[in-house]
Computed example of a mutant assay.
Amino acid sequence: MRRKRKRSRYSSGLSFYEDKNTVNTSRIAEALLWVSYTVIALFLAVICFRSFGFRIGVLGGSMEPGIVQGQNVLVNKLAYRMSTPQRGDVVAFYPGGDDKMHPSVKRVVAIPGDSVQILNGVLLVNGIPCSYSDGYSSISEAGLAADMEILEDSQYFVMGDNPEDSEDSRSAGIGTVQDEDIIGSVWLALPADGSRLHRVE
């Protein structure tokens, strides 16, 4: 008669520990994967915030009524990586190219190749009255724009929507803005006294 082989009394215990080790390894792998996803998500969130959520406090009333004094705006710093500012864009830039100065927010009214002049109180771009703001038809101070100027490559002429309370490209302290001094496109105005959250246009 053939004898039955005795099962080791330790075999079931060994199997238990092997299963336990497998479960622990699986849980560790899942935890590491979760941590990796979390780190990547946080990294992408920081990149997005720094790119699209760069916040600037607007000084003065040069962009009223759309953007009021003291209102915070968000700047898209990636807007002009693959393109260039266009007429009508509201941009943030460093006045005089000095990145130690508080950024200024103004509207681009003329781009490279355009002619710009303020004649009889009216802002003319390529000889045509500019209509981005009602204030552009009753400008009391022409400044540097009293004589016609044709913008060279990388030069932009910027003005505030409220030109009577704006230091902009008409002023020798700012002049035309170089493209390397433009931080990005202003796209969102945050809530402030008397002004709600709205997209900047």
Rank of each mutant, 00 (worst) to 15 (best):
I56C: 06
V109F: 10
S133M: 07
S171E: 12
Q69L: 00
S104H: 02
A192Q: 11
V46R: 03
H198K: 12
Q71P: 06
C130H: 07
G160R: 04
S26G: 15
G194D: 01
E18F: 14
L123P: 06
D179H: 08
Y136T: 08
V177Y: 04
R170M: 03
K77D: 06
S36Q: 08
L74V: 06
E149L: 07
H198Y: 05
D153G: 02
G184R: 08
G160L: 00
P103E: 00
V90W: 04
V23G: 11
R107C: 10
D19V: 12
E149D: 04
R81I: 14
L44V: 06
Q71R: 05
I28G: 13
V39G: 04
L190G: 09
D193G: 10
G60M: 05
D19Q: 15
K77P: 10
K20V: 13
G13K: 13
D181K: 08
S62W: 00
Q69P: 09
S51D: 12
C48M: 11
L32E: 15
V122E: 05
R9D: 15
R7K: 14
V75Y: 00
L32A: 14
N120M: 09
I128Y: 08
Y17N: 11
S131I: 13
G97H: 10
V23M: 14
L124W: 03
R7N: 11
K106R: 11
K77S: 04
K106W: 01
T22N: 14
S12G: 14
K4M: 11
E167V: 15
L119Y: 11
V125S: 12
L32H: 12
L190P: 02
C130V: 10
R27S: 13
K100R: 05
D168P: 03
S171V: 07
K20E: 02
S51W: 11
G173R: 09
S36V: 13
S115W: 02
